[in-house]
Design a protein around this nucleic acid. Structure first.
Length: 306
DNA sequence: GTTGAGCGTT
């Protein structure tokens, strides 16, 4: 195998993009998906029959037809008829790519007055830049504010500016910091499975699969029943899983936190801790509802439902 | 109905 790159396009008569092949001459689906988010395979026009042919895909690895990619232009396959949806995903991944250089994360807002609402927070922080979401953490029973919340900005510069100063919100000085949960150092786990924390009950396995597909081939989605506010997503490629660790992703308007999935054993104490939350999770009232900018929400909504 | 450093139902 001498090819270093193969030519891939979204359509036969569109300008192709060069995608790198591996040392053994195969091409990773994740390499294709990196340029064409949501891609699930490749096809090409067989010069002899003039018919479209599929490229063999095994475990996320694309194999050259007859061991030679040749000089053909390969066309991206998308799941079902999701092309429209992929355009939306493109918009979403553009956000991610942008964040790739200087990624923003949720900031914890400490010292909020009890009376401060999510609308108040949004109004205040919008004066610094575009706000993706705000939350005020409340007691589940009483609905009282716990005096802290979270905010997420579109631009990293905004985040930097907000962290750098104190904030007078509704008559109290508040601080914005990177939350402790951000700590996700280089673990030697190399797991293909990620832990998705802070899930809401309305997230289905299909929706999670749809969402995470944009990052790479998803091999499994597991949501514990009864509802426990987290899920596991397994990728074909451990690099995809590892790359997502530490991220805060917004799914259906909710900020979920991605971390390494811990091995099944060794968590009996965690199970005990969780026990008290086992029931009464059926209805989550207004507390914890994220306020989402309309435009952003529509994009995400469309991404998941259209 | 109270409170004032913290960390988001692993």
């Amino acid at each position: 195998m001498s090819e270093l790159y193969i030519r891939v396009a979204e359509d036969e008569n569109e300008e192709p993009m060069e995608i790198p092949s591996e040392d053994d001459g195969t091409v990773l689906l994740s390499s294709v998906a990196a340029q064409f988010p949501g891609a699930c395979g490749l096809r090409y026009r067989n010069p002899e029959s003039q018919c479209m042919r599929g490229v063999r895909l095994l475990e996320g690895v694309l194999h050259a037809p007859e061991n030679d990619w040749g000089n053909l232009v390969y066309v991206v396959n998308y799941p079902k008829d999701n092309k429209r949806k992929m355009e939306e995903i493109d918009a979403a991944s553009a956000v991610k790519i942008k964040r790739g250089f200087q990624k923003t994360s949720d900031l914890i807002v400490l010292g909020l007055p009890w009376k401060t609402t999510e609308q108040d927070l949004k109004d205040y922080f919008t004066t610094f830049g575009e706000v993706i979401m705000v939350q005020v953490k409340r007691d589940a029973k009483t609905g009282n504010s716990k005096g802290f919340g979270f905010v997420r900005f579109t631009d990293y510069e905004t985040q930097t500016k907000v962290i750098a100063q104190r904030h007078m919100i509704d008559g109290r000085w508040c601080d914005c910091k990177l939350p402790n949960s951000k700590a996700c150092p280089d673990e030697p786990m190399r797991s293909r499975k990620i832990f998705v924390g802070r899930c809401t009950e309305d997230m289905t396995t299909d929706e999670l699969r749809q969402y995470f597909m944009q990052y790479g081939e998803v091999t499994d989605v597991f949501i514990p029943k009864p509802f426990r506010a987290f899920a596991f997503v397994t990728f074909a490629d451990d690099q995809v899983a590892q790359a997502l660790c530490g991220e805060d992703l917004i799914i259906k308007g909710v900020s979920v936190h991605i971390s390494n999935a811990e091995p099944k054993h060794n968590n009996s104490r965690q199970m005990m801790d969780r026990g008290r939350f086992g029931v009464n999770l059926v209805s989550i009232p207004t507390g914890g509802t994220a306020y989402i900018l309309r435009s952003y929400y529509l994009k995400i909504h469309c991404l998941l439902f259209c």
